[in-house]
Amino acid sequence: MYRVKVYVTLRESVLDPQGNAVKNALHSMNFNEVEDVRIGKYMELAIGKTDRNVEEIVDEMCKKLLANPVIEDYRYEIEEVAVK
């Protein structure tokens, strides 16, 4: 089976109000070296045996549901793990 980690963040061109609020909070704590904060989502998927190409499936799921391509970017890591 596969363990898949999916990361979804707002696209660079889209203002992230949450990220900005957190950045300002960090600045007020004197972490002035912080230049940017982007808040996103992290998902873990366990995918069982399949005849299809796993990367293809994950990409399709991201496009159709897990991310909204109008405002979000996504990336993923796929790891094959042995079934116990």
Binding site: L10, V14, L15, P17, Q18, A21, N68, V70, I71
Partner: peptide
Amino acid sequence: LLEAGLLPGAMRRNEKL
């Protein structure tokens, strides 16, 4: 309707959260 693609665009969190 936006998610379904019946209308263009998307919604973000309100600017002031």
